[in-house]
Design a protein around this nucleic acid. Sequence first.
RNA 1: GGUGGGGUAGCGAAGUGGCCAUAACGCGAUCGCCUCGAAAGCGAUUGGGGGUUAACCGCCCCCCGCGGGUUCGAAUCCCGCCCCCACCGCCA
Length: 419
Amino acid sequence: MIDLRLLRDDPDMVARAYAKRGGVEGLEQIAELDATYRELLGEVESGRAEHNRASKAIGRAGPDERPAAIAEAKTLADKLKVLETRLDHAARARDEAAAYLPNLPHESVPEGLSEKENVVDRHVGEIPQFDFAARDHVTLGEQLGIFDGDRGVKTSGSRFVYLTGPGVMLELALVRFALDSLLDRGFKPVIPPVLVKEHAMFGTGFLPADEHEFYKSERDGLYLTGTSEVGLAAMHSDEILQESDLPLRYAGFSSNFRREAGTYGKDTKGLIRVHQFDKIEQFSFTHPEDSWDEYATIRANQERILQTLEIPYRVVTMCAGDLGSSAAKKVDNEAWLPGAGRYLEVTSATNATDFQARRLKVRFRDSDGARLVHTLNGTACAVGRTIVALIENHQRPDGSIGIPEALRPYTGFDEIKAV
RNA sequence: GGUGGGGUAGCGAAGUGGCCAUAACGCGAUCGCCUCGAAAGCGAUUGGGGGUUAACCGCCCCCCGCGGGUUCGAAUCCCGCCCCCACCGCCA
């Protein structure tokens, strides 16, 4: 949710900002709905004031004045009821329309309407030069018993896998490694609920826009989250935090569930695009003035993890048209996959500014009263895709995988032997 | 799932149809007085959202778990839901 006052005070600025993302439909209507709402609100409020006065007068009235006073108050009450119904409709119409408005892109976000216009900023790390034909992660993974895709399909359908043997050890090692690299930087580990109420999905901006992306338990009215961001963001909903407690930093670990609707035929094998995967996620609640510094912190953590794992990657800034609904800015790191011969998104960092905070009502108190915080999220380690990048980049001619130095204390072994 | 009790400010808690909503009372917090300093004591202050305003002041509206209803008027009465506590049942 954006601040509708912005739309009220400077509609051109808002329209220009949205035009950068490809425009939004019905911006003028929303402005009109808002104006109608406020006009009605004024009428209702003065109606209520009048009625309150009449009503209170009854309490003080003597027995003979009472019937007349009651009759007068009743007339006012009836009139009010009609107005209040209209106000109610107006508020609903405005809020429903406004709920679809995405965040305003930050000025540093490049122009562009499709992912083709995302900007590659930098390349980091050595691309490995193999003197043998590099295998892709599907071949390596099934050969080495890291995962079992066929049985995943048997049990749960396509895009489900069993992670097995060394795959499990690798996952647990990566999780603990990523967690450790955040703990000493003030991130508190959290395993959030992955089944959440509608308000959490709405508050993070995944609803109403991306409904089709998520599994839902209709019977209980709960959604399976596609990222621990949801549980972490909602953790402080309806709270007023202490200014001195900011930034609040969390390292969330959870399984994530995505329906991957509309991706039929894309990455159907292996760990790249699955309905269920585990991930360590950074999430920060910050003072609004500090959120871009925090953004840099989160991104630095992401890059450090990739570098430490000796995975080459490039940094891609999303253009305005490719931003998620809550994002003012989004930057991805894409790992190079020597086997597949392409780059793969392995991390993503978003500054949602006050967009989620407004919907979730997460505020802090300073001398001006309660103000909205900013929220940010960024992958620390998406386990499945990191395993993909890791094994493709650290494969050896004989089909074994070398474990990067920094991960060995966590795996307890320094290679996955060829079989 | 059943029965009983409960959800009011940062916390505890009073209030069972108007004179009780910034809301009694107590605690905590902040500021001031006192003090060399502190404690004690005394005094003051101490919620959120919204409208009006260029902004401030002011004025007004809304908020007693959530949503409906009854009434001129609801924290208070009625209905539904959620959550907490206790016991029972069921399950690990």
